[in-house]
Design a protein around this nucleic acid. Sequence first.
DNA 1: CGCAGGTAATTAGCGTTGCTAAGGAGTAGC
DNA 2: GCTACTCCTTAGCAACGCTAATTACCTGCG
Lengths: 143, 143
Amino acid sequence: MERVSEELDLDAQLRIAVGRLNRRIRAEKASDELSDGQFSVLALLYREGPHTVGELAEAERVTPPSMNRRVNSLVEGGYVTREGSPDDGRKVIVRVTDAGAAFVTETRRRREHWLNKRTRALTAAQRETLRQASVIMKELADS
Amino acid sequence: MERVSEELDLDAQLRIAVGRLNRRIRAEKASDELSDGQFSVLALLYREGPHTVGELAEAERVTPPSMNRRVNSLVEGGYVTREGSPDDGRKVIVRVTDAGAAFVTETRRRREHWLNKRTRALTAAQRETLRQASVIMKELADS
DNA sequence: CGCAGGTAATTAGCGTTGCTAAGGAGTAGC
DNA sequence: GCTACTCCTTAGCAACGCTAATTACCTGCG
């Protein structure tokens, strides 16, 4: 692993690191009530307010049927509601319920997660690197 | 996004960034012949030589049955071979074939991948940040 | 008006990949 | 040589993504 950190391997390194860390985060999540994708949708709705199914699909970069399934699960769990759009009957607006909002805040509060614990053990400089990298990675993902 | 990059949110930011980038990388992969996980195993075998199924499972952090399935796919595709261990009949040694090795090098060569293109467009400082972050993220994942 | 064509959501059905549980073959120790 | 353990494999299940097809609705043009 010594000479591997050459310029040319940034690609491979980043890909592997992102893949592993992502899997590890998923494996260590605190609550089993919602999947990663479901919680992601719930958090988005909580953060940015009601959205249509199509908007959610686009935001999460999944197809409408996939998003529809996620929304179904959330509705069944009582985390969100579906309501028809007043001005366009084709559209369906998804809105967080009080229970859903509570779940988001509650989940955040009890996040003595694996990741949290680990990042706390890092140096300030390492955390800063990760923070900057997060911004760059998001830009990469959204570009 | 201004005040969001506070200490407390590193967690959430990193998690989201890793999730999104991981999905995006997977979506944009060049070759459809092998899945991400299958290629990961193939590359490991190419890089580090023959391993048993159990070793591969541990290295990739999946269960033995899951690894067994990956190996099956690779054997069917002619990328690797299965052979009994000479000294322990229970073990099965997985070894890259010439075709498998060629696929790894060929895949690397034709990697004008999405990620590669994007990272090339970054500044040197940004690449350096990502490189350092990759190391830290791997440590996090492996800890 | 009324129908043709487009858009949004949904349903149906498939493939991949992970897991747990259980089975089969081989090894090791008493 | 029998018991217990290890390693791989098979069987069956669940999650989640996708494409294709269906339903409901809107829009515009004859």
